[in-house]
C-alpha cells in the first residue's frame, strides 16, 4: 500500500485524448498520485529517462505495440508498467493486452475511480482484473465455455469418438439402448450439438475426449 509519506508513482499519459487525460490526471492527483505527466508521445523516452523511478505508462491500445518496441531497446523499459487505454476491450481484449505485456486495461467509459485503481495497481506491479474475467477464469473446466461433464459422460463421448456404438455403450453402462439414447440426447444438447458428429467435434475442441481432460 502506498502511504502519504512516500511520493506517488510517476504516471505518464501518452497520446491519451485531451479531455479524458485531463479528467484522469485530476482523479489520479486526488488519489495521491501527484506526479502525472501528459505527453503526445514525441518526447516519451526522454521523459521516462529523466525520472529514474518506476512509472506507469498509459497508452492507447493502437499505439501500444510501437511504444513497447521502443521501450524494449531502452534501459527504462524494465521499470515501466504499461496500461492500455482500450474502449470496450471485453474479456478477449483484456487477455490480449495482458498477453502483450500490459499490467492493466483502462476502459474510458468506466468510472474514473476504477481507472485510478487500475493505474495504481499497475504501479504496484499488480493487475486489476474485471469481475467478468475472474468469473470466466473461475469456471471449473479447462476451456472456457465447455460444459462440466461427469467422468462417465466423458467416457461415453470417448467411446463414441473411438467408433463405439450406442448399443455397446448401453451394455457397458447397464442401460437399455433407449435410455442410453435419451441420456446421449441430453449430453449432445449440453454440448450445444444437435447430432453425434457435432457433439464429437465440440467435445474434441474442448479437449473432452482426452484421457484425464476436463477434470471433475
Amino acid at each position: 500500500m502506498s502511504t502519504s509519506a512516500r511520493p506517488g508513482p510517476l504516471v505518464v499519459l501518452s497520446g491519451v485524448p485531451e479531455v479524458y487525460g485531463h479528467g484522469l490526471a485530476h482523479a489520479l492527483s486526488a488519489a495521491g498520485a501527484h506526479r502525472v505527466v501528459r505527453t503526445d508521445g514525441e518526447d516519451l523516452l526522454e521523459l521516462l529517462t529523466e525520472h529514474p523511478a518506476p512509472a506507469v505508462l498509459v497508452v492507447p491500445e493502437a499505439a501500444a505495440e510501437e511504444v513497447r518496441s521502443a521501450l524494449r531497446g531502452s534501459p527504462v523499459g524494465e521499470r515501466v508498467a504499461l496500461v492500455h487505454l482500450a474502449p470496450g476491450a471485453g474479456r478477449d481484449g483484456f487477455v490480449g493486452a495482458v498477453r502483450a505485456g500490459a499490467l492493466g486495461v483502462l476502459d474510458p467509459d468506466a468510472e474514473l475511480e476504477t481507472a485510478v485503481e487500475v493505474v495504481l495497481s499497475a504501479a504496484a506491479g499488480r493487475v486489476l482484473v474485471p469481475r467478468t474475467l475472474v468469473e470466466s477464469l473461475a469456471e471449473p473446466v479447462g476451456s472456457a465455455g465447455a460444459p462440466q461433464l461427469a467422468e462417465h459422460e466423458r467416457e461415453w463421448l470417448r467411446m463414441l469418438g473411438q467408433g463405439g456404438t450406442v448399443a455397446a455403450i448401453a451394455r457397458s453402462a447397464s442401460y437399455s439402448e433407449r435410455e442410453m439414447y435419451r441420456l446421449l440426447a441430453k449430453l449432445y444438447r449440453r454440448l450445444g450439438a444437435e447430432t453425434r458428429t457435432q457433439a464429437l467435434l465440440r467435445a474434441a475442441d474442448w479437449g473432452l475426449l482426452d484421457e484425464g481432460g476436463n477434470g471433475p
Binding site: V166, R178, R182, L184, A185, Y188, T195, R196, T197
Partner: peptide, 10 residues
C-alpha cells in the same frame, strides 16, 4: 435414419 438414433427416441 439419422446420424444416430437420438432424434428417433425423442
Amino acid at each position: 435414419v439419422d446420424d444416430d438414433a437420438t432424434p428417433y427416441h425423442a
